[in-house]
Amino acid sequence: MSRLAVLKTYKLYIGGKFPRSESGRVYEVLSASGDFLANAAKASRKDARDAVVAARSALSGWSKATGYNRGQVLYRIAELLEGRRAQFIDEIVSAEGVSAAAAAAQVDEAIDRWIWYAGWADKYVQVAGNANAVSGPFFNLSVPEPTGVVAVIAPQDSSLVGLVSAVAPALVAGNTVVVVASERLPLSAISLSEVLVTSDVPGGVVNILTGSPAEIAPWLASHADVNALDLVGAGSLDWVSLQIAAAETLMRVFAPENGADAAAPSLARVTQFTETKTVWHTKSLL
């Protein structure tokens, strides 16, 4: 007699905890062949706002951590992902209907991208910042600093690699993130939150919402406590309206990306979530 499997309840990930949607709503997640996989939480406006509050309260600690420290925390995530490699592969095979080899390639790429971005945490300042030779007796330095709370609409056509490619670069500089996962492929996102909660990432640094991006995104775009909006995976939404809503608070907005190169790893994805601060200090005239 075969053993009856224990199924997982997939919930949201907000402030380091796993709440159900306050709305009580769920939606069915189906496999590529149309079989029932799970009921995922369908996040509401209130859930999105709770996630922004959690991201804002985590910002001070995460942005003040040293680059070396953030780099190690991010690297630790990759270590834990590697340990759960088989679980993610199984999940992707059933959700996307791809071969085990293709699923493995996606997981490996996701892990390698975490590591690539982890390595930037103590270097991007040197590359993107500079000393400025001004015409006067001043010490003048420009450094990139985190923009703040970043809302992300994750790429919708992959379970893990798209999500990682959108979230990891925003974390490098010390931003905190509210991400809306792929609507059709949300299960790996919630499994990723199980990785995050057991890693050293403080609660609230990453908040993961599942549900309808079309429903949640407008609340994030118009939220006055969101500093940047990455629409990388919003290509099929009415993203122009989201940009218009975001203009109200002059939130930094990044347009949808499509195709195989969407959210490809680049230093620009790190620096787009930074602000250049220039400090002038007088030098005495000796």
Partner: peptide
Amino acid sequence: GVIWANTFNQFDPASP
């Protein structure tokens, strides 16, 4: 974006 320490309203083309 711009912080002046012991000075104020300084501008220079080399300084963002």
